[in-house]
Amino acid sequence: MAEILPADKAMDRALALLGAGEVVAIPTETVYGLAGDAMNGEAVARIFEAKGRPRFNPLIAHVCDMAMAERIGVFDPLSRRLAEKFWPGPLTLVLPLREGAGIHPLTTAGLATIALRMPRGFGGELIARLGRPLAAPSANASGRISPTSAAAVAASLGGRIKLVVDGGAAPVGVESTIVKAEEGGLRLLRPGGIAAEEIEAAAGVKLLRGAAGVQAAVQAPGMLASHYAPQAAMRLHVGEVRPGEALLAFGPNRVPGWQQAVMMRNLSQSGDLREAAANLFAFLHELDSSGAATIAAEPVPMEGLGEAINDRLSRAAAPRDNGGGDA
């Protein structure tokens, strides 16, 4: 099983493993990531191997500062403005990959673009100490619920990796928002930890929704239809709870039949969307462990971070196949 070390005691061990081409589960402000050297093909392959991840799904490369980001991606003025506003933080920018950047093609899934993010806390310090960008999708088996605690990582990947760095509960609780500047505006590829409205205010333009073009399905992580999935089936926007179901509730008012749920977790009793986002994956884990065959989810409004929450729920409820994706 993986060694679990608190963040204040894990730096040297994490650096040694990463320097040897191994992978390490690390805390970030969004969810826990499974990190490997983005310039080392063997390390990136170990990420795919540990997760059972489809190789056509690209990874986010994490950087420690703008100097490192500039060496990897080509910034347009709008992307630079967003980086200055939201980095470090839960925003990923999809940019043209700079020639000679040294990023291994497995990281980009062979695309001419690179997804870049600058994390806060332990992850940023680790990258600065290593001096190399880290590819770091969510630290869970591919297609399953993203982990927001070290315990969740250990339960999913503990037998496949050597180290989990415990930084406590992830404060944001959903993956980063992914955007891409393109001719005609700014496109939202994945809603996440920064609300679309905040990005629009900073950018001064309305966000285009969804991917466009022939490579729409692979422009960024987290875009596969079936994703973030529990073992249980899911029903969304329910008007009642059926016998034997677990209930993912939201807000102060319950749908009929809630008393017969085998387990209930409320994303936010007060209806706070930021609290709901932080609780989402942890509560899905708990409800999935209840043994219920189905998780019923009450409606969550679409404004603000509700867009990201509904995106994750719809992917978790989508028809499953063997190639699920992840963050």
Results as ranks from 00 to 15, higher is better:
E298A: 13
A154F: 06
P137Q: 02
R129G: 12
G213D: 02
K180W: 06
D76W: 13
M118H: 08
E245T: 03
N266R: 05
V238P: 00
A246T: 07
D321Y: 06
R274D: 03
T108N: 08
I114N: 08
L116R: 15
M68E: 05
L248I: 03
M223Q: 15
A276L: 13
G291D: 00
R187S: 11
D166M: 08
T28R: 13
R120W: 06
A20F: 03
R129K: 15
L157N: 12
E245L: 01
M66P: 00
V174H: 03
D166C: 14
E183H: 07
V300D: 01
V172W: 11
L78G: 07
D321K: 02
G222L: 01
L267H: 01
V262W: 00
Q260M: 03
H237T: 09
A212H: 05
I114M: 05
L15C: 12
V165S: 06
L95E: 08
G304Q: 13
P299K: 10
K206F: 10
I178L: 10
L15I: 03
S138M: 08
F86M: 13
V300E: 04
L106I: 08
F122G: 04
D166E: 11
P105Q: 11
T148P: 03
R53T: 06
K85F: 06
A43C: 07
G251I: 08
V218L: 07
T92I: 12
P6H: 04
F281K: 00
S270L: 11
R13V: 14
D65T: 08
A169T: 13
F122P: 06
H227K: 01
M263S: 12
E197K: 12
G73F: 05
I72F: 10
V153S: 09
K9Y: 02
R242Y: 00
G110I: 04
A10V: 15
D311W: 09
D37H: 02
I47V: 14
A220G: 01
V255I: 13
S149F: 10
A211K: 02
K85Y: 07
A233P: 02
V44L: 01
Y32C: 09
G213T: 05
